[in-house]
């Protein structure tokens, strides 16, 4: 069975598409809001684009998991996602409490996506230790 299955191919294509939308959205928002100074409703709409691209990324990931036929690899992917979500929520919760009492600097909420991405690596590492496989989906 090839590791580069249609499911994985579709996941990679969708990842490239949402990443391009995210990058274009960030650039468009910066240009239109910071440089041009568009009205608030337009600024709101433009600034939503990168955020919605990230929603697309989450949907893409979950869609890939449900489409994965290999149950062992699917289990590893779910495990990785749970660890990533737990890691992101844990760090964000602790940071939020510290921030509430002005003990740490304010961090924008969208950085939780960065924590989630770091958590994905933690999840892969955990899969490698416990199951001997990094956990990439076929």
């Amino acid at each position: 069975m090839s590791r580069f299955t249609p499911v994985r191919r579709q996941y990679l294509v969708r990842t490239l598409v949402v990443t391009a939308i995210y990058a274009a959205g960030i650039f468009a928002a910066w240009y239109l809001i910071v440089k041009v100074g568009v009205s608030r409703p337009i600024a709101f709409g433009v600034a939503l684009i990168p955020g919605l691209a990230m929603v697309g990324m989450f949907y893409n990931t979950l869609s890939m998991i449900t489409a994965t036929q290999d149950e062992f690899m699917r289990m590893l992917a779910v495990r990785q996602q749970l660890i990533a979500a737990g890691f992101a929520l844990a760090v964000a919760s602790v940071w939020g409490c510290l921030e509430m009492f002005d003990l740490v600097e304010h961090v924008e909420a969208f950085y939780i996506v960065v924590l989630w991405a770091i958590g994905l690596f933690v999840g892969q590492f955990s899969n490698r230790i416990t199951h001997g496989v990094w956990g990439e989906c076929p």
Partner: peptide, 16 residues
């Protein structure tokens, strides 16, 4: 079995 080689290995070694 139409699964990955890693799946077979994990089952054989009792990890799954």
């Amino acid at each position: 079995l139409e699964v990955s080689r890693q799946s077979v290995n994990a089952i054989e070694t009792g990890k799954y």
